[in-house]
């Protein structure tokens, strides 16, 4: 069967399966199990209403549990075990972690990840805020925002190709086709540089790709937040003779502090998961390794599930503070 047909069939089965499940389980609850009739009508209605939420929730909870909650536990277990040749697992305690900590590649990935974690959220948020502020009252602001937002729709892989062309380098005697080298030569650079192989700095060239993508996200959220600032506070500042920069840094930014924090943490999460860009552009060579790519290497090229899982747990550990912060905020909001 052709995959396209299979796809259509899956949509049909999936959708009708879902609708059928919800419809029939409700019918069963109301008509067969606890019909709102007879001597126990009242009690039955109450009971049916106690069960119904769980009918509605069941498929989603099953998906969440199986695809997100269980893997966290299982990965933890795998990180503490080792595969025995011929099948089965053996408990090895923290061996995988110590083995990982002894690898220079892991520390290279950790170091790079720290740079990514500092630079990308900071730059994306700063650029996002800048664009949001600058475009706020100009006539073609929405058009400009649209264009800066556009990279959000482009895949990491597509963005990697786009930027690889920007960073392309040719031998000195040829015309440069990468715009960065062309500019570099134009402004007096001696030799064309292969930007992605310059240790240390090449990581920053990779970060630019993610900043380019994430700025649009930051801009959209911060732009909405800026518009939500009460006019009176700004008017009062103008009356007091504040200059535009004072208004921006002393009046506006403090009022959208929480939103800035939200944007920052959301981009931080994205950074921790970044895999495609490094995978497609350098594959971790020339000291550009990051955790997510290191983990992929261990799992699927090295076939080392123990160390791979251990590095996945490191990513999880780095995410955890944000996770807790988010959950606490959400609970506060609901009360």
């Amino acid at each position: 069967m052709s995959p396209a047909l299979q796809g259509l069939l899956t949509i049909a089965i999936g959708v009708s399966g879902c609708v059928g499940y919800f419809y029939l389980s409700n019918q069963f609850l109301d008509k067969v199990l606890f019909p709102p009739r007879g001597p126990n009508a009242g009690r039955n209605i109450n009971r049916a209403n106690m069960i119904r939420p769980w009918l509605f929730l069941f498929p989603a909870l099953a998906a969440l549990g199986l695809y997100l909650a269980y893997p966290v536990v299982e990965t933890l277990r795998l990180s503490l075990t080792e595969r025995v040749p011929g099948g089965g697992y053996r408990w090895v305690g923290l061996d995988n972690y110590t083995q990982m900590a002894a690898e220079p590649k892991f520390w290279e990935a950790m170091r790079n990840n720290m740079f990514w974690l500092i630079v990308v959220p900071a730059m994306s948020t700063a650029f996002g805020l800048l664009v949001a502020q600058l475009t706020d009252r100009i006539r073609w602001g929405n058009f400009a925002k649209s264009l800066i937002f556009m990279p959000m729709a482009i895949s990491f892989v597509g963005a990697s190709v786009i930027w690889k062309l920007v960073y392309d380098s040719r031998p000195a005697e040829q015309d440069q086709i990468g715009i960065l080298n062309a500019l570099y030569i134009f402004f007096g650079g001696a030799e064309p540089q292969t930007w992605l192989t310059v240790p240390f700095w090449n990581s920053f060239f990779l970060m630019i790709v993610l900043i380019w993508i994430q700025t649009g996200f930051a801009m959209v959220i911060l732009s909405a937040a800026l518009r939500g600032i009460p006019e009176e506070t700004i008017e009062a500042a103008i009356l007091d003779g504040a200059n535009p920069f004072q208004i921006f840094f002393r009046i506006k930014v403090p009022q959208i502090k929480t939103t800035i924090l939200v944007v920052w943490t959301t981009i931080t999460i994205t950074v921790l998961k970044v895999f495609d860009i490094v995978f497609a552009m350098t594959n971790g060579q020339w000291e550009t390794q990051v955790l997510a790519n290191y983990m992929y290497d261990k799992l699927f090229r090295g076939d080392d599930w123990g160390v791979g899982s251990a590095s996945a747990m490191v990513i999880m550990l780095l995410v955890t503070p944000i996770l807790i912060w988010n959950v606490r905020n959400a609970r506060k909001e609901m009360e």
Partner: peptide
């Protein structure tokens, strides 16, 4: 669960 990295889910 919104922020759990899907990297954890691959092998399991």
């Amino acid at each position: 669960l919104l922020v759990v990295p899907l990297q954890l889910a691959l092998i399991p």
